[in-house]
Structures are given as C-alpha cells and as structure tokens.
Design a protein around this nucleic acid. Structure first.
Lengths: 166, 166
DNA sequence: TATTGTTATACTCTATAACTATA
DNA sequence: TATAGTTATAGAGTATAACAATA
C-alpha cells in the first residue's frame, strides 16, 4: 500500500541469491544454539550462567566466590546475586572457610547435584537433537572448522563472550 | 590459597580432555563472530542494528519505519530511536510520504551511501580475515553444516535472534 | 595496605502501554 | 475503528564504585 516506488511489490531481501555471508550465518546459528540451550535448561530451574557456576562449584568443592567468578569471568558483585539465587533454590550452600574468615566456601547440595545431573542429561539430549542429523565425521569436521575460526578470532578456548548476556 | 581441599593445586577445567561440547563451541564462536563484526563496523560509525537498518533502507528506498521494523523484527518504538540515531549521523532522512501523511518515508543520504559502502567493504575484509585460513571447499562445507544445524534449530534463514541484543 | 564479600548506583536495553495525527 | 509514529515508563542486565570485615 502507498509505496509509490519502483520496487515491484514486496520488500527486497537484504541478501543476494547465494544466501547470507558466512559470518552472519555463523553468528545466527550461534545465537540460536545459545537460545535453545537456555530453553533446554529451564525445566531444571537454571539459567546458563547458573548452570556454569553450579558446574564450576561441583568440580571445585569449597571454591570461593571470587575464585569462581574469576574462572567464569563474572564480576564479584554479580557473583553475589548469582549465588544468592542458587542458594535460594537450594542448589548450593555458603559455608565458612576454616582458614580465612572472609571467604564463603561454596558447596553443592544434594538437591543441587540432582538438578545438575538432570540439566546435564537434558544438555546431552539437546546436543543430540541439534547435531543428530550430522554423521560422526561431519561433527568432527564441524568442530575442526569452528576451532580454526576460533583461532582466527583469537578466542580463549572454552570461554564465552556473552554467555550470560541474554 | 587457603583451600584446604583435596583438589591438587589450581582449579579444575569444566570440560573433559576432548574439549567443550560442540554446541558450546558453536555458541562461543558465534558470539565471537558477532563481537568482531561490531568492532569492524565501529569505524564506520555504526552498530550492527544500524547497519541492518541502513542496508534495508538502501535496498528499499522510501520504505516506512514500520515496514522496515517488521522486516528486521524491531519494535516500532525501537525503530524511532534507531532512525533518530541514523538521522543524527546524517545517514538517512525522514521524508513525508505523498499518499499517506502518517508515514515517514526513509531515504539514504549521500553520506549514508558512503558510510554503507565503507562498512560493506570492512565487513567483506573481516569475512576474509575470519575465514581466510579456510579453503573455498572448507567454507562451503562449513556453510552446509551450519545450514543443517539451522534447520535442526528451526531458524528462519537470514534472521538473527539477538542481532541487536548486545 | 590489600582482599572477600556485599551494597548502592548508574547506565544501557528492552518491552509495553499510552498518546497524536492521520486514515 | 485502525494504523504510523512517537513518548513515557518500567523491568532486566551490566558495570562501577563504595563499604565493612578480615587478612
């Protein structure tokens, strides 16, 4: 209605016939994967960041908040809110540290362990759902190619710019 | 210091020896790509969302704000701020529409065309920087694999959950 | 003096609902 | 009444600095 322009009818696609640039596709699929992961985690009562913290504590029982935050690149003040949340859900506990009364040693509760196991199972099933159409060789190839891109981007392995940003 | 735990020395890595799960790697590299794109765009005086709008307007001169927003999945109220910004930079103009006095027809200025060309050039060079270590065949394979994942995730092609979120 | 956890504050983003002027 | 653009407002998320207790 009322365009009065030379464009034939609808709107023009922003991309040519050969599809979006590879970088755009990669970013798009990456966001989609993160979004899906968030949905998959929700039934376990966790967000991705909380999952990451819970996992970090589970593999490092008694870790301090700041050490945990440093490993995950989360600011101390954010760790407080994050741990408040996880403690409110009964997934972790703050215990006094024997040798330094400033630190609050983090420990996973039995309930937290169960939730972590559930979340882990869901994450693995999701991994299968997302990459299930690819053969084992194709997954290996995808991993190899992504790692090459990670190197070109100068990413630290296993780190996530924006893991908890949305 | 002062851990008093059975962990040997430093912190445990959250992943096994075979590296992060593929989904995590994909999300990580996707975020990294988006982040890099933002940096690459900055010298042109644009953010990714602004670039998307400018591009949409350039391929659809005279498009209305709402039509543009609908194509990019941006809410009308956000389009106002976005167009304010782009107009403030002198990249686009709001002109009255001949047939409907409610709509503000969007047009790219000469300056906007130059900025768009610069940004486009930078984006292409970046694409080369990011994927330059891959052969043509490898890039094609990466595209194919990512498209398979996009299908599994049920993503609309050429759309971006979170394009403007960070 | 430095460090751990905490609180307070400001700033950005985003989502929603009004409001106006046109249709 | 419905629609295009605009404004206002509230909510989340993030980043920073200040603070008390302890080292």
């Amino acid at each position: 209605m009322g365009d009065g322009r030379s464009t034939p009818r609808g709107r023009q696609s922003p991309f040519g016939a050969d599809g979006p640039p590879l970088g755009f596709l990669l970013a798009s699929v990456g966001f989609g994967t993160a979004y899906r992961f968030r949905e998959v985690l929700a039934p376990s009562g966790m967000q991705p960041r909380e999952f990451a913290v819970l996992r970090q504590v589970a593999t490092n029982e008694g870790i301090s908040q700041q050490a945990c935050g440093a490993a995950l690149k989360v600011a101390p003040s954010q760790m407080v809110a994050l741990v408040d949340d996880l403690e409110g859900k009964g997934f972790i506990e703050r215990r006094p540290d024997a040798t330094d009364r400033r630190v609050r040693a983090l420990h996973v509760t039995a309930r937290g362990k169960r939730a972590l196991a559930t979340a882990f199972e869901a994450a693995m099933q999701n991994e299968e759902g997302v990459f299930g159409s690819l053969t084992k060789a194709e997954r290996a190839e995808l991993r190899r190619l992504l790692q090459a891109v990670a190197v070109a981007l100068d990413l630290e392995p296993g780190q996530h710019p924006g893991m908890g940003q949305d």
